[in-house]
Design a protein around this nucleic acid. Structure first.
Length: 509
RNA sequence: CGGGGCGUAGCGCAGCUUGGUAGCGCGUUUCACUGGGGGUGAAGAGGUCGCAGGUUCGAAUCCUGUCGCCCCGACCA
């Protein structure tokens, strides 16, 4: 019985959201849990997150930040301190109201039920983000300008009671890092915000092979409580936008709300300027949608839990052990002698007693960048059969083992580069410049485009005008691209007033 | 939270209209055969049909409630 052509059904063009879920399942990344909106991240998925963590953590530390940890539960009153912030998160907070359970037997059914008792005088909110509780700590920690800048990062989980959860992309609980810093001056805080913005962009490119548009959010799209929000926007294969990371300049809003003050060089009391910034497990979802194909997950080598899987092909019993030994030896050589992205190569020999085809497709679906097969003929000829995940599943090349060893790091890098290029091409082909309103409006109708991509327009409209357009066409201003704001004046797509501003519009996750 | 769809074995589904305590495909287990490939055969395991009530002699099937999932929308990392 011939198997279907693709390992994943439906395909991307048939049904993108369903395809996404099937990829997650086929690659064994995560599953829905009994807890509403929360996922169980399985080892293969968590290893990807760990790789992202390792890389980013190194970058944060290299730029002077230190890790710390703050409480999961935030006193309700803290959230009330910054009005805009409080309002922004109010609708999605999980609240802890009791601190004890009492067993109670139902007289009718005889079943034991646990009843919440011990009501708290002040409820706690499970952190949706930690500005307030970290701000409270900062207000104790900062006294003098000598204490600044204060550069803190936290790796943690947060909870936002989202209406519509989807694995990795939007779950009620998610893992992330949140940087929180305090500075003497506005300039210094903005510089920090920009530096992290660039750090995220670099990391997405070098680690995840995802090209991003760097831009600023409009007031309507800004983080609640921020004066400026910078974003890295990625385009995935259905041409929707996804905010992959953000960096906020919070001005003195939180400093004033929480009395984070210091005595400056002139012996005057001043409010600090704060920033916050984060990326989350949403990056894993972004990664899946950016690169994967109709045979399953496709992983850039830097984040692949295994970068190379070696499959022994053992058709004859008498050569079986020799082949397995050769595979193990090759794996050991790779691990000992080769590094990629500053880490030893991650190589696995799949010696499970299964049919070769089963094993091959397993690793295809899991997105392993390079598959190596070694059979009796290859062993005799000192060759390996090389298959790349960025190429079709049936494509293979036979190369000398020594050549393979010499070129393996380059080959991995070429997989990374080809994924990056492909993503960049998709993105660039789906950003269209648009300067007149009728074209703009027609663009978003379903008859014209199922996956409309993004439009770049001259923009000088107000917040109200932006929100009206957004609502009408189910789009948002993804960002004001940083490298597009200093060009020639052109008439705003809506008002016709001359403007240098440019806005990028699209549908988003 | 609004609109639509859906919860039956790990996954995908049939059965429900016309109530009589479950079936198919894939997967899985064991054995044999096979062996550059997601193969073949045989035997087997696995479900109180999301949960709680109700109607009934009898409920996967009818009624009520509830929880959850998926898609679209509003909200958002």
């Amino acid at each position: 019985m011939a198997k279907p052509k693709n390992a994943i059904s439906p395909t991307r063009t048939e049904n993108f959201p369903e395809w996404y879920q099937q990829v997650v399942r086929a690659a064994d990344l995560a599953e829905n849990s009994e807890t509403r909106g929360c996922m169980v991240i399985k080892p293969w998925g968590f290893a990807i997150w760990e790789a992202i963590q390792r890389d980013l953590d190194g970058r944060f530390k290299a730029t002077g930040h230190e890790n710390a940890y703050f409480p999961l539960l935030i006193p309700l009153s803290y959230l009330e301190k910054e009005a805009e912030h409080a309002e922004g998160f109010a609708t999605e907070c999980a609240v802890v109201t009791h601190h004890r359970l009492e067993a109670e037997k139902d007289p009718e059914t005889g079943k034991t039920k646990m009843i919440p008792r011990g009501k708290l005088s002040e409820p706690y909110v499970i952190r949706p983000t930690s500005e307030t509780i970290i701000g409270a700590a900062f207000s104790r920690w900062v006294e003098s300008y000598r204490d600044l800048p204060l550069l803190i990062n936290q790796w943690a989980n947060v909870m936002r009671w989202e209406m519509r959860p989807r694995l990795f992309l939007r779950t009620a609980e998610f893992l992330w890092q949140e940087g929180h810093t305090a500075h003497e001056t506005k300039e210094e805080a903005i510089e920090e915000t920009r530096m992290i913005h660039q750090l995220y962009s670099d990391a997405l490119r070098d680690l995840l092979a995802i090209p991003v548009i760097m831009g600023e959010k409009t007031e309507a799209e800004r983080f609640p409580g921020a004066d400026m929000t910078l974003t890295v926007e990625a385009m995935v294969q259905d041409k929707k936008a996804i905010q992959a990371g953000t960096s906020h300049y919070l001005g003195q809003n939180f400093a004033k709300a929480q009395k984070i003050t210091f005595v400056d060089r002139d012996n005057k009391e001043q409010f600090v300027h704060t920033t916050s910034w984060g990326v989350s497990t949403r990056l894993v979802g972004t990664l899946i949608m950016a690169h994967s194909d109709d045979d399953g997950l496709v992983l850039p080598p830097r984040v692949a839990p295994q970068q190379i899987v070696i499959i022994p092909v053992t058709p004859k019993e008498e050569s079986r052990q020799a082949i397995i030994d050769a595979c193990q030896a090759l794996a050991q050589t790779l691990r000992n002698e080769k590094t990629y992205g500053g880490e030893a190569l991650r190589v696995k020999v799949d010696d499970r007693d299964l049919g070769g085809g089963v094993k091959k497709w397993d690793w295809v679906k899991k997105g392993v960048p390079l598959r190596i097969e070694i059979g009796p003929r290859d062993l005799a000829e000192q060759k390996v059969c090389l298959q790349r995940r960025d190429q079709a599943a049936n494509e293979k090349s036979f190369i000398g083992k020594e050549d393979f060893l010499r070129e393996v790091v380059e080959t991995l890098d070429s997989v990374h580069q080809s994924l990056l290029e492909k993503a960049r091409t998709l993105r660039d082909e789906n950003i269209t410049e648009c300067s007149d309103l009728s074209t703009f409006e027609a663009h978003w109708s379903d008859e014209n485009h199922e996956d409309p991509g993004w439009l770049l327009t001259p923009w000088g409209g107000t917040r109200e005008e932006e929100e009206e357009l957004s609502k009408k066409h189910r789009i948002t201003v993804r960002c004001l691209p940083l490298d597009q704001q200093d060009g020639a004046e052109a008439p705003c797509v809506l008002t016709g007033q001359p403007t240098k501003g440019r806005a990028l519009w699209g549908r988003s996750y």
